[in-house]
Simulated assay, not measured.
Amino acid sequence: MMYLYAKALHVVAVVTLISGMLAFAFALRMSIAGPDRDDTRRFGESVLRWDGLVTTPALAIVWMAGYTMAFGAGWGSSPWLLVKMVPALLLTGLHVLEGLALKRVLQEGKPVHRLFGTVPYVILSVFAIIAWLAVVKPF
C-alpha cells in the first residue's frame, strides 16, 4: 500500500519538476532573445521564486519517493533502475545549471549561452527516456 502512495507522490512531483524546468528553459530563451527587456526580467524573477517554493522541493520529493519505491519494491540493484539514474542525475544537474544561468542573467546581466536554447528539447528527451525505463523495465 505504501508503494502506491509513494508512486502517486512521485508522479505528481515529476510533473511539477518538469513543468518548473520548462519554465526555467522558457525564461532562459526569453533572456537570449531580449536580455534587457523588463518583461523578461519580471518573468525570470517569477520563475526563480517559483523554483524556490515549488520546483526545487518537487525535485527533492522526486528523489525521496523514487528511493522509497525502488527499495520498497526490492529494485535497488535492478539494471534498469541503475541505468535510469544516469538521465535522472542529468536532469538534476540541468536544473541546477538552469538556476545558476538565470540568476547570472538577472543579477549580473551576463548573457546566457545560446546552447540554453536547446534545453527544452533536452528536458523532454531525457524525461521520455526515464519514463520508458520506468514503465518498460527492459532489463
Rank of each mutant, 00 (worst) to 15 (best):
T16D: 09
W75A: 12
Y121R: 07
L53G: 00
T40G: 05
T40A: 11
L28T: 07
R37E: 11
S46W: 13
Y3Q: 04
L97N: 06
I61C: 12
S77Q: 14
A33L: 15
W75H: 06
A73K: 08
A58S: 14
V119L: 08
M1E: 13
L102I: 14
M85G: 04
M69G: 05
L133W: 04
V119N: 02
M1A: 10
D38R: 06
R29S: 14
A134C: 00
M30D: 06
V14F: 10
R42N: 03
L4P: 00
V15N: 08
W50I: 11
A131C: 08
V83E: 04
W80Y: 11
I129T: 13
G66I: 03
R37P: 01
V62Q: 03
S78C: 05
L91A: 09
V14M: 11
V136G: 01
A70Q: 08
L133N: 04
V136D: 05
V15F: 12
L124T: 09
S77G: 05
I32H: 07
M64P: 01
H113C: 13
F116W: 13
T56A: 15
L48V: 09
F127I: 01
S19Q: 07
R29G: 13
T16F: 09
P57H: 03
P35M: 12
V105L: 15
L28Y: 10
V86S: 03
M85N: 02
A6P: 01
R42M: 12
V126S: 02
R49Y: 05
A60L: 15
W63V: 15
P79D: 12
D39C: 01
F139S: 08
T118P: 00
V14W: 12
S19I: 12
M2D: 14
V96H: 05
S77I: 15
R37M: 11
K137P: 03
T55N: 01
P120Y: 13
K103R: 14
V15P: 05
A58I: 09
M2S: 12
Y5H: 08
A73D: 04
A33P: 07
Y5L: 15
K7R: 12
L133K: 01
A131R: 00
M21Q: 13
M85R: 00
L17R: 00
V105Y: 09
G93T: 09
I32K: 03
T40E: 09
L106E: 10
R42Y: 05
A101Y: 07
L53H: 02
V47Q: 03
V122G: 03
Y5A: 14
D51S: 13
L48A: 01
S19W: 06
L22E: 08
S78W: 00
K103T: 06
S46L: 07
L82W: 11
R29W: 13
I61E: 02
W80H: 04
P35N: 04
A73P: 01
A58C: 11
S77D: 11
K7G: 09
T16N: 05
D39M: 08
L82A: 08
V12Y: 05
L53I: 10
K84Q: 00
L22M: 14
G72V: 12
